[in-house]
């Protein structure tokens, strides 16, 4: 828990915050904003297309469900050093048709 936050300390904090907020962009870059990050733009998700027929990725093959439960992650996680994994990488655990 913080030390008691008084009216006076809030006033001081806001005063400092206002001068930070009014500072020129170059000065702001030196502050916490250097961590600021943006991702890719989102798309519109509703449309009226009909997929790509019966042969594209993610089809409803009969064994598809079983595959989902026995797959292992194979992406950028393999480049991370994970502390929880016995291999030191994204843990590669296969589950066979086990449902929770």
């Amino acid at each position: 828990m913080n030390k008691t936050v008084t009216a006076a300390s809030l006033a001081l904090a806001f005063g400092a915050a206002l001068s930070l907020a009014a500072a020129p962009a170059a000065a702001q870059d030196k502050m916490a904003d250097k961590e600021k990050c943006y991702g890719v733009a989102l798309k519109g998700k509703n449309d009226c297309k009909a997929g790509a027929g019966t042969s594209c990725a993610g089809t409803s093959k009969i064994d598809y469900q079983g595959n989902a439960w026995s797959m292992v992650p194979k992406g950028t996680c393999e480049k991370t050093a994970s502390p929880t994994s016995p291999t030191g990488h994204g843990q590669l655990m296969a589950f066979k048709e086990k449902k929770v």
Binding site: L10, A13, F14, A16, A17, L20, M31, A32, D33
Partner: peptide, 12 residues
């Protein structure tokens, strides 16, 4: 935590 910096972040 740094209260002035956090308020500054929100305002900015």
């Amino acid at each position: 935590f740094d209260l002035p910096a956090t308020l500054g972040l929100l305002l900015r």
